[in-house]
């Protein structure tokens, strides 16, 4: 589904990703861990098409399409979704009408009929229960004045409504209390099918107790320096990253 080969990306002449390889197949959950500043969010942004990054080498293909050539909205309509590490506030744009617009753009692209206000509301009510979000948050401008946890739930709500094929969650668990964490994880587990895939960026093995990954990767200084199963996450929790960094330097 997602195939990244030797991806090298720089920002303002500064190399951030330095030859990254990653293969994600349908039905899989991949966790990416790694120290602060190692390039995890950069990877997520490049994959979703944010401006300001220069691709120096390598490639990224999604469902066989050359991802790096696609406009961000086309990637989204093709089923990619990024849950932002820091969801921004958009004053004046109503959360409900924003989500309805987004869903209908995606549906149009898939050749499905657009939903009218009534059908949309019944859909969104269902998904709100899934993430246990308060209804009044829908009436407010996107993320404006939302607490940290509410912003993260709003990301998951958007994911549930748009029902993506490939979802990248950038530290969605950071800043969540234990109940919220369970709800977010529950959302992911309910959306999980053999046809879709998740890339979950996290600092905490804790999340992976709820969402069990098939693979765990360690991203350090712009490269994946180790990949393993969920056992690797336990090891990282216990030993930190230093031993890995030393190992990779020896190699």
């Amino acid at each position: 589904m997602l195939s990244i080969k030797n991806l090298q990306v720089s920002v303002d002449e500064k190399p951030i990703l330095k030859g990254l390889n990653l293969e994600v197949k349908a039905g899989e959950i991949h966790a990416i861990m790694g120290p602060n500043g190692s390039g995890k969010s950069t990877l997520a942004h490049v994959l979703s098409g944010r401006e300001g990054y220069r691709v120096d080498a390598g490639s990224a293909h999604y469902k066989g399409l050359d991802l790096l050539e696609m406009a961000p909205e086309i990637r989204a309509r093709e089923g990619m979704f990024l849950a932002f590490q820091y969801p921004i506030e958009i004053p004046g744009v109503n959360n409900t009408s924003f989500l309805k617009k987004a869903l209908n753009e995606v549906r149009k692209h898939r050749g499905e009929e657009e939903l009218d206000a009534i059908d949309f509301l019944s859909l969104i009510k269902k998904q709100m229960n899934l993430v246990e979000m308060k209804e009044d948050l829908l009436k407010r401008p996107v993320n404006q004045g939302f607490s940290g946890g509410e912003k993260k739930r709003n990301e998951i709500l958007q994911m549930a409504v748009l029902n993506p094929t490939l979802a990248i969650l950038d530290e969605t668990d950071s800043g969540l209390d234990i109940d919220a964490l369970r709800i977010v994880a529950g959302g992911v587990n309910k959306l999980r099918t053999p046809e879709n895939a998740f890339v979950i960026i996290t600092h905490y093995q804790r999340l992976l107790d709820y969402i069990v990954p098939d693979f765990v990767h360690v991203l350090s200084d712009g490269q994946i320096i180790k990949s393993g199963t969920k056992e690797l996450a336990y090891e990282l929790e216990e030993r930190g990253y230093d031993w890995l960094l030393e190992d990779s330097e020896k190699v």
Partner: peptide, 23 residues
């Protein structure tokens, strides 16, 4: 950043600009 947020949800650039300007 706001433009990108909207685009990343499937809304094209023109519509995103329109939404933000109206907002």
């Amino acid at each position: 950043d706001a433009l990108f947020y909207l685009q990343s949800r499937g809304i094209d650039k023109k519509d995103a600009r329109l939404m933000l300007t109206r907002a």
